[in-house]
């Protein structure tokens, strides 16, 4: 069955290029991509349930607290849903997110690497 991935932007920051590249690569690899865009925690959590997704991808353009708020809202509805993130995530913040079980792919990560991560993270379900 086709695996479904929800992609969202955590910030009100309009840099779409990175997310667009990731979405293309995932679609080319056979995933169904659902785009939540610039959404807030409750909207993302609702979409994760309604769309019955297998993975959540967050484009982070801001502070760690926003990511934490989103992930906690999502995990309340969908415990165990894997989450990965990309964007301008400074090294200290990357460590912080990884501690919370979020895989991080900072700028410069290969699309192939991101697709492989999506395949691995959705394989269990």
């Amino acid at each position: 069955m086709t695996k479904r991935i929800l992609l969202a932007k955590t910030a009100l920051d309009g840099h779409w290029r990175g997310l667009s590249m990731v979405a293309r690569a995932l679609r080319d690899a056979g995933f169904e991509v659902i785009m939540a865009g610039m959404a807030v925690d409750t909207e993302i959590a609702r979409a994760a349930v309604d769309e019955d997704v297998d993975l959540l991808g967050l484009n982070v353009g801001g502070r760690v607290e926003i990511v934490e708020r989103i992930v906690s809202a999502v995990r309340e509805q969908r415990p165990g849903l894997p989450v990965f993130a990309g964007g301008a995530i400074a090294p200290w913040m990357k460590k912080e997110l990884e501690r919370q079980g979020i895989e991080v792919y900072p700028p410069g990560s290969a699309l192939g690497e991101i697709v492989a991560a999506a395949q691995r993270l959705t394989a269990a379900g």
């Binding site: 910030a11 920051d13 309009g14």
Partner: peptide, 20 residues
């Protein structure tokens, strides 16, 4: 958050991302 969107800081879209 505020300038590009012409939102004040009490706009709900901004409040939800206040740390940014």
């Amino acid at each position: 958050n505020t300038a590009d969107h012409l939102y004040d800081v009490d706009h709900p879209s901004v409040v939800a991302r206040r740390e940014d």
